[in-house]
Amino acid sequence: MPSPNPRTAPVLPERVHPHSRPLPQLMSLLLIAFCVCCGCSTVHLKPRVTNIADYSREKDIKTYVITVDSKMKDEDYKNWTQQHFEENRLCLENPEYEGIPIYEIHYHFVLRRPGYRPRRIAFLIWRNSPDDPSKMNHLFTYIGSSVSMQNWILR
């Protein structure tokens, strides 16, 4: 049977499924679901370092007190401190005492939030590697507040 004249044959409307949604709306829903599944990490505020204070006393031990406005992930304290001393080249040179290699670097992280008393939340020690003076070994990271002040001095 010959097809009807295309100029005169009526255009039949497309059959639309009653439950189908337009594609952009579906993509938006998927994106929101993805964000939720990622634990809202895309909207969670990252901890901010608000102050870095140098409390060093000894010639070959650097001591820093880092003030933050919220807690970091446990592993991030190590990453942040490593970045800090690498950027400041502390494993290669001693800013205050030329010619005296740095033996240890101590980092105290203090949480300071409005309306709350500041408290130490983490403590790290890096120590000069005996095999390679240009490298620092991470001794440990302590996460917590309850260790008394006298224990912060290791020597």
Partner: peptide
């Protein structure tokens, strides 16, 4: 282990 990522948590 001197090269560990040793994290000591309070509890």
């Amino acid at each position: 282990d001197l090269h560990s990522n040793r994290i000591v948590r309070e509890q």
